[in-house]
C-alpha cells in the first residue's frame, strides 16, 4: 500500500478542468517520477496532492487516511514537504533563514538537520549569510531542496528540481535525491529530463492532458518503444 495516493483527481484553477482523473502514488523509500509534455498538468497534479487546488473529484490519501480537505499547512504537519517549480526560495532572505523557514513548524532543536543539509550541499554552508536571490540557479535549487528537507519529511515532493541547472549540478542533485530516498523518505517528483529521471524511478507516470497515459516501473517505461518514441525523443 502506498503511503501517499492521489486518486482519480479532477480539478483545475476555476476554469476548465486541467486534471482529468489522474492518479499518482508513492511508497516509503520509493522514488516516483511524473513525466509528460509541457502543460500536461504535472505541476497541477503536484499542487492538487499538496492541497493547493480544490479537487472536484477524487481524493488524496495519506497513510490510509483521507486528507483531501486538509490545508497545505496541515499537510506539512503530517510530514509532507513540497518544492514548487517556480519561486521556490525566499529570495530576500539568507540561505540560513530559508532553511530556518523550512523548520518553522518544528519545536525541537533543528540544528542537527541543518548541519546534515550543509553536509549534503557544502556550498550552502559557505553562502549561508547570502540572500538566496543572489545565488546561481543550481544553488537556488539546493536551497529549495534543503528548505523542504528541514521538516524531516516522510514524503518529499519535488517539481522539476533540476530545472535550469548545469549537467554537473543535475547529476549531483539526482544523487542527493536517491540518497534521501534511501533514508526511507517517499519521493514524488516531476522531471523534465525524463530519461534520466526514469532511470532512478521505481514507478513512473506519463501524464498527458491531465490523464495517466502510461504507468509502470521506471525501467519498463524506458524499455517501452511507444514511450521512447513519444516522450523520450526516440
Amino acid at each position: 500500500m502506498s503511503i501517499l495516493l492521489g486518486e482519480n483527481m479532477v480539478g483545475g484553477y476555476g476554469g476548465a478542468d486541467i486534471l482529468q482523473g489522474c492518479t499518482v502514488a508513492v511508497d516509503v523509500g520509493e522514488i516516483a517520477v511524473i513525466v509528460g509534455p509541457n502543460g500536461a498538468g504535472k505541476s497541477t497534479a503536484m499542487k492538487a496532492v499538496f492541497g493547493m487546488l480544490n479537487l472536484r473529484e477524487g481524493r488524496v490519501v495519506l497513510d490510509g487516511k483521507d486528507i483531501t480537505a486538509l490545508s497545505p499547512q496541515a499537510r506539512v504537519k503530517e510530514g509532507m514537504a513540497f518544492v514548487p517549480q517556480t519561486n521556490n526560495v525566499f529570495a530576500g532572505m539568507t540561505v540560513e533563514e530559508n532553511l530556518e523557514m523550512g523548520a518553522y513548524l518544528r519545536t525541537d532543536d533543528f540544528r542537527g538537520t541543518m548541519e546534515q543539509i550543509y553536509d549534503l550541499f557544502p556550498i550552502l554552508k559557505e553562502k549561508r549569510r547570502q540572500a538566496a536571490g543572489e545565488l546561481s540557479g543550481g544553488q537556488r535549487q539546493q536551497v529549495a531542496f534543503g528548505r523542504a528537507l528541514m521538516t524531516e519529511p516522510r514524503i518529499l515532493m519535488l517539481d522539476e528540481p533540476t530545472a535550469g541547472v548545469s549537467p554537473i549540478v543535475m547529476d549531483e542533485l539526482f544523487d542527493r535525491i536517491i540518497e534521501v530516498g534511501r533514508t526511507g523518505v517517499a519521493v514524488l517528483m516531476v522531471e523534465q529530463n525524463a530519461a534520466q529521471a526514469l532511470e532512478i524511478a521505481d514507478t513512473g507516470y506519463v501524464l498527458v492532458t491531465g490523464e495517466n497515459r502510461f504507468t509502470d516501473t521506471g525501467a519498463a517505461l524506458l524499455a517501452n518503444p511507444e514511450v521512447r518514441r513519444s516522450f523520450l525523443g526516440g
Binding site: M52, P72, Q73, N87, V89, F90, M93, E97, M101, T151
Partner: peptide, 23 residues
Amino acid sequence: SRTGKAMRAYSDNEDLALLSGVN
C-alpha cells in the same frame, strides 16, 4: 524572532511561506 521571520517570509513569497507552515 521566529514570528518576525515568518512575516518577512510571507512578504517575500506568500505561497512558499504557506508551504513552510506559516499561518
